[in-house]
């Protein structure tokens, strides 16, 4: 079963063909990072206009890289939410048009659920290793610019939200801290790179919220701001690196510590990490080091937003009997559970 997955929840116009939920036939992503970097973050109106410009060539390339034609597709999958309303609208209406014209079934997919399914793509793991499908029950950490959720998954389609951020998402804290340090956008990769320049990370607080699986990163962001302000108008380069490293250390320690503790508590058989923050190498290494069970983490290109995860998720949903739904609409505030 070949599914075309379309993803446009934020600033990536992405399309991918996935076969049977496992085999990645193509994965095309037109990023808008360079455009948004000029504004220091994602500008919603710019994002939807870019989606309009980019999507048709992206889809054509996805089909051609998969070496298939329109007639070979069995279904269309598209991100329904959560995300920016204007961005989601472009993807959903495009998917509906294709489904209508080609008489294909269409499935609306929850973006967060999609992130989890990036881990079912064979050879999609970061180490290039071919792995068995993750065993249930499993614990999934979804950490991105808009979300930080700890989810217990007992089976396909069965989710229990154990914890979530009470304020800022982890990826948002990376973006805003990078901005405070004058490092640019997006914050994740540049903070990871800058942090490598020092062996003396600054001491920053650890927002543990003991007794809960929830997260909180707003106070940490403020602590970074205070520390940067204390350096005066121009922050010396070595201090930028130390603060970046201290910030990353704090986020990683809390994400890993809380995920591992939750995994022990619910006796999870595997830990899955996904979302843009999972592309952080330090997070991945620490998670593997501390986890009592196998850790699954997609390749960085499959951690950040992509169409393959949407197509993979749709395969398992359609196998479970989810019907085609032409009347579905965008749901910008959709949550996983």
């Amino acid at each position: 079963m070949k599914i075309l997955g379309i993803e446009s929840s934020c600033d990536e116009s992405a399309a991918s063909v996935v076969e049977d939920g496992h085999i990645l036939r193509s994965n095309v992503i037109a990023s808008q990072v360079e455009i948004h970097a000029r504004f220091g973050g994602i500008v919603p109106e710019v994002a939807s206009r870019q989606h309009l410009l980019q999507f048709l060539p992206v889809i054509e390339q996805a089909l051609s890289e998969a070496d298939i034609g329109w007639d070979d597709l069995d279904a269309i999958a598209v991100t329904q939410g959560p995300g920016l309303a204007g961005s989601l609208l472009v993807g959903v209406n495009l998917a509906k048009s294709i489904a209508f014209a080609r008489e294909l079934p269409i499935l609306g997919i929850n973006h967060l659920e999609g992130h989890i399914y990036a881990n079912w793509l064979a050879e999609g793991q970061w180490d290039g290793e071919k792995r068995e499908d993750p065993p249930f029950p499993l614990l999934a950490l979804i950490a991105s610019g808009g979300h930080t959720d700890l989810v217990l998954m007992n089976d396909f389609g069965s989710y229990q939200l154990l914890g979530r951020t009470r304020d800022d998402a982890a990826g948002e804290a990376f973006d805003k801290s990078a901005r405070v340090l004058g490092l640019g956008f997006p914050g994740g990769p540049i903070i990871e790179k800058t942090a490598r320049e020092t062996t003396n990370p600054a001491k920053l607080p650890r927002p543990w919220l003991r007794g809960s699986h929830d997260f909180s990163f707003s106070g940490l962001k403020t602590a970074v701001l205070r520390m940067a302000e204390a350096e005066g108008e121009i922050i010396p380069e070595h201090r930028i690196a130390e603060i970046a490293a201290g910030f990353q250390e704090s986020v990683v320690e809390v994400l890993v510590g809380k995920t591992v503790a939750a995994a022990r508590e619910v006796r999870a058989k595997a830990i899955l990490i996904s979302g843009g923050v999972a592309a952080n190498g330090v997070l991945r290494e620490e998670m593997i080091r501390q986890a009592p069970v196998p850790v699954y983490c997609p390749r960085p290109v499959l951690c950040t937003d992509n169409g393959a995860m949407i197509a993979a998720c749709a395969f398992f949903q359609s196998k479970a009997g989810a019907p085609s739904n032409m009347s579905m609409d965008v749901r910008p505030n959709l949550s996983l559970v």
Partner: peptide, 13 residues
């Protein structure tokens, strides 16, 4: 509920 940051999607209700 906790009102988490709506920076990503602009509006939470």
């Amino acid at each position: 509920e906790y009102t988490k940051s709506p920076t990503f999607v602009l509006v939470h209700e």
